[in-house]
Amino acid sequence: MYLFLCNLCINGIIGASSFYPKILYDISFDSHVITYVGCLTQIFVIFFYIYGECTNLTVMAYDRYVAICKPLHYHSIMNIRKVWTLILLTWLFSLMECSIGLVLLARLPLCGVDIDKLYCSNWAVVKLSCVDTSLNNISGYIFMFSHFSQAMLILISYINIIKASLNSQAEWRKFMQTCLPHLITLANFFTSIFFDLIYARYGSNTSMLALRNIMSVEFLVVPPLVNPIIYGMNLSQIRNSVGQMLNHKLLP
Rank of each mutant, 00 (worst) to 15 (best):
W91Q: 09
W91Y: 13
L92V: 06
F93N: 08
S94V: 00
L95V: 02
L95K: 01
L95H: 05
M96T: 08
E97P: 01
E97W: 02
S99I: 00
S99G: 01
S99M: 05
G101W: 01
G101V: 01
G101A: 15
V103C: 06
V103L: 07
V103H: 01
L104C: 06
L104A: 01
L105D: 03
L105M: 07
L105V: 01
L105H: 01
A106T: 04
A106H: 05
A106L: 05
L108V: 06
L108T: 05
P109K: 13
L110H: 08
D114L: 13
D114E: 15
I115K: 03
I115H: 09
I115Y: 06
D116L: 11
D116N: 09
K117M: 12
K117G: 10
Y119T: 04
Y119C: 12
C120Y: 05
W123A: 03
A124N: 12
A124T: 05
V125W: 07
V125F: 05
V125Y: 08
K127Y: 03
K127W: 10
L128A: 00
L128H: 01
S129R: 00
D132E: 12
D132S: 15
T133Y: 02
T133H: 04
T133D: 12
T133M: 04
S134F: 12
L135K: 09
L135G: 06
L135C: 13
L135T: 12
N136P: 08
N136R: 09
N136E: 15
N136L: 11
N137K: 15
I138Q: 05
I138V: 13
S139I: 02
Y141F: 14
Y141Q: 14
I142R: 03
I142Y: 02
F145S: 14
F145D: 09
F145R: 10
S146R: 10
S146K: 14
S146D: 03
H147W: 12
Q150R: 07
A151H: 09
M152T: 07
L153F: 13
L153E: 13
L155Q: 10
L155R: 10
I156G: 00
I156W: 07
S157Q: 00
S157L: 04
S157A: 15
